[in-house]
Each structure stands twice: as structure tokens, then as C-alpha cells.
């Protein structure tokens, strides 16, 4: 009995020591996850999620403080990518697969106040004071900040017009479960 007691105690002590050492040797510094999450997010730092910029949102996501559906400009695709990265089973059906949007200036209403121009996080609005502004399509992330500040409602988010170049086939709908009775 004494043998059992001593041998098991010593074994426990040695294993404990090994684990303690291992914990020090293999300590993970920082959080690689946050960096990967930042890569997934749009990076326009628009702040619509309520966190300070995309890095703040990534931090919150990594700590589980925010749902993967937090990014409105990212839409469904980003939500799915985040869920996959975090390994969570998110219900993304609530996130409407937003038609890609873009800001457009209605020239007859624009007074050239430059407010939209100042808040745009990606410098996608061109123009100067007292001149009608216009949107540089390639740079607009449809974050909607310009829409918020525009005093005359001349800036509005509109669906991106489909072009021959961007058009592609819809997903076929004739499916197995299509036979579901109404």
C-alpha cells in the first residue's frame, strides 16, 4: 500500500511538473485570430457595427462579444466567412444577402456642402465646396455614412446596376425539395 501511495504521488508530481513546464514553453503570445478576422472584414473602418473600426470589431468577435452578423456592409458573405473562421454555427438567414449597393448623388438635389465628402472613409466622393459631388464607384463600400450626413437627401444608396460584364446565371431553383407542397 505504501508502494502504491508513494509511486502514484511521485508520478503525479512529475506529470504536474511536466505540464507546468509545457504550459510555459508553449505559451501563445497575442492573438493570431484577431489578425485573421481583420482580414475578413471589409476594412473600411466605417464603424456601423458599433466598435471602433474593423480591428475593434475583430477583437470583439474573437472574444465572443459580438455576433458574426455584425457587419452590415459585409453582408452575408462576410458573416459566413466569419462563422467559418470562428467555427460557430451562425444563423445567417437573418442577414439579408444584400444586393451590392453603391452611393449615388442625385445632382438636382446636391448643394455641394462637402459633408459627405468629409465623412467618406474611402475617399470615394469627389468634388469641392459649392460643386456637385460625384461618387467614385470603384471605391465606394456602401457604408452609408454619406447618406446619414447629407442635408438634402441627395446621396442615397442604390443597388449596383447589373452590367453585361458583371451578370451571371442565377442559382438553379429546380431542386429535390421543390416538390414541397404549398
Amino acid at each position: 500500500m505504501i508502494t502504491a501511495l508513494t509511486s502514484l504521488t511521485i508520478l503525479g508530481a512529475i506529470l504536474g511538473l511536466i505540464l507546468g513546464v509545457a504550459a510555459r514553453v508553449f505559451r501563445v503570445e497575442g492573438n493570431a485570430l484577431v489578425a485573421e478576422l481583420v482580414d475578413i472584414l471589409p476594412g473600411s473602418q466605417c464603424g456601423q457595427c458599433g466598435f471602433p473600426g474593423c480591428a475593434g470589431a475583430a477583437q470583439a468577435l474573437a472574444e465572443g462579444r459580438a455576433p458574426v452578423t455584425l457587419c452590415p456592409p459585409g453582408g452575408r458573405a462576410v458573416a459566413i466567412a466569419l462563422a467559418a473562421k470562428l467555427g460557430v454555427d451562425a444563423d445567417v438567414s437573418g442577414v439579408q444577402d444584400s444586393v451590392p449597393m453603391i452611393a449615388e448623388v442625385r445632382e438636382e438635389l446636391c448643394i455641394g456642402c462637402t459633408r459627405c465628402f468629409k465623412v467618406c472613409p474611402t475617399d470615394a466622393i469627389m468634388g469641392a465646396a459649392q460643386q456637385i459631388h460625384s461618387v467614385f464607384r470603384e471605391a465606394c463600400t456602401a457604408c452609408g455614412k454619406c447618406e446619414e450626413v447629407c442635408p438634402t437627401e441627395s446621396v442615397k444608396l442604390q443597388p449596383v446596376p447589373v452590367t453585361l460584364h458583371a451578370w451571371y446565371w442565377n442559382k438553379p431553383v429546380t431542386q429535390t425539395m421543390q416538390t414541397v407542397a404549398a
Partner: peptide, 25 residues
């Protein structure tokens, strides 16, 4: 063809995301 189109759109989206991120920075 749907998937090819979708992937191409994703590709375009990614390029645009990179470009806008650079602009934001």
C-alpha cells in the same frame, strides 16, 4: 456557370475590398 459567375464576383469583391481598404488606410 452560376458558380463560375459567383466566384468571379467574389474575386471582384475581394479586389475591391483590398482597394477600399488601402484607400481607408
Amino acid at each position: 456557370n452560376f458558380a463560375k459567375g459567383e466566384l468571379m464576383e467574389q474575386e471582384r469583391g475581394k479586389l475591391k475590398q483590398e482597394a477600399t481598404r488601402k484607400l481607408a488606410d
